[in-house]
Amino acid sequence: MYLQKALTKSIRTDFIVEMVQMVSGLLLVLFLWTHMVFVASILLGQSSFGALAGFMDKYELLPVTVVVLIFIFAAHIGAIMRHLPARWAEQKVAWRHAKMIRHKDTWSWLFQIVTGFGILLFAFIHIVAVTYGGISVSLSKGRIDNPGFLIFYAILLLMSEYHASVGLYRIFVKWGFVNRHRLDRVLGVVTLLMLVIGFVTLGVFLTLKVAGGGVA
């Protein structure tokens, strides 16, 4: 026994943090996929996208979503920090280790850290842009027409779908019940599907002619 341990009232903290990590991760995946469906509504025509944007506007859903999202992001990052190789020496060990054992899932963990930090930065920029700009077909079109923003969104799409896919895989693997390799394949197909929808949506925006002078 150690003094600090004796003074710790609840030994449940690690368990609770693990749960926060999982639940916040699942909520973020849910958000990511819902977001994708909403954005892909442009595939059904500008009026569908406009209707959804109008619906979000009418009930002030945009600021609510942003605030809730920031909380979930914070919870996820806070919870995940404890597992990360946070110190420089640990980083070096983790990368050297992955190289040494040539193990796919160990590599995907390191990519998970890289994409995690990438998403943090990119999503921040995206959220600021949407929060101050609002949502409409012409605004999205305007951003996608900028080659810098187009590349930005392509990278954000790739990073977030990869991160979500690996994160989901990890949850199922850790809790059991499913066959690992079948799971890998199923998630691979789902992720590919999401990426296809995402890139087609980007393509549609790129070639779009905004109807009615950009009012959505």
Partner: peptide, 28 residues
């Protein structure tokens, strides 16, 4: 709860103890 689920253990056990199943069992 320190396990991050990389399953290098499960992929390596030379005598095939079903480690992933054991980890999931204890986790649950």
């Amino acid at each position: 709860f320190g396990c991050v689920g990389l399953m290098a253990c499960d992929d390596s056990c030379p005598i095939g103890v079903p480690l992933r199943g054991q980890l999931a069992y204890v986790r649950r």
